[in-house]
Amino acid sequence: MFEARLVQGNLLKKVLESLKDLLTEASWDCADTGIQLQAMDNSHVSLVSVQLRADGFDKFRCDRQLSMGMNLTSMSKILRCAANDDIITIKAQDQADNVTFVFESPNQEKVADYEMKLMNLDQEHLGIPETDYAAVIKLPAAEFQRIIKDLSQFGESVVISCTKEGVKFSAAGDIGVGNIKLAQTASVDKEEEAVTIEMQEPVTLTFACRYLNMFTKATCLAPQVTLSMSPEVPLVVEYKIGDMGHVRYYLAPKIED
């Protein structure tokens, strides 16, 4: 059987908030190392990869590899029934056709359980090679969300250009042109507010705003976001999930025709 108990249940709630606009259904692949999910959005332009390591759960049992296909809209509705401070347990029998979510209040006075049907999804998995990116930018997640939100008003694409001076986000459209330049922060008292850039070579790529906006739904998960870029390869936008995993979004660039 499979059973995973997460005391910080709100992390799982936030993960679903991070996925539900992009994916309607996906499979959670469970093994003794933890839970993983990889799925492309319907247009195959973006991909989400989630990892929740077993050691991040305060109880984790997975007798046999299990792949649970779920409708994420339904799963999100169920997780919304959990309070932010609830302990969340996910349970399923081997070869099960349903999964149970248990929400316990911290004082154990209230226990709710919701059973959801599982789906048979045979989704394609992509092989993502380990990449040494030309530029890796770390910045406050809220800052990135604000930049994308502001520039989305100007056009449907954002050009992200990284040089040794810093990183520039640009968008152009009918109403005009917007440019936002972020310099690498010298010294900050709080690590989370820093903008750091590790650059091996300058890189400039163009991406669709609508996907970047959907990625920033994960801002609730982590104070920082990491952008990894290399010429002619998809962008990687990563948010940590506590110290137990991550949500990684991959977005194919737009190429000048």
Partner: peptide, 14 residues
């Protein structure tokens, strides 16, 4: 205007 690529042009299906 720039053309959107598909992820499968970059990553192989496993």
């Amino acid at each position: 205007t720039p053309i959107q690529n598909d992820l499968k042009e970059f990553y192989a299906i496993m």
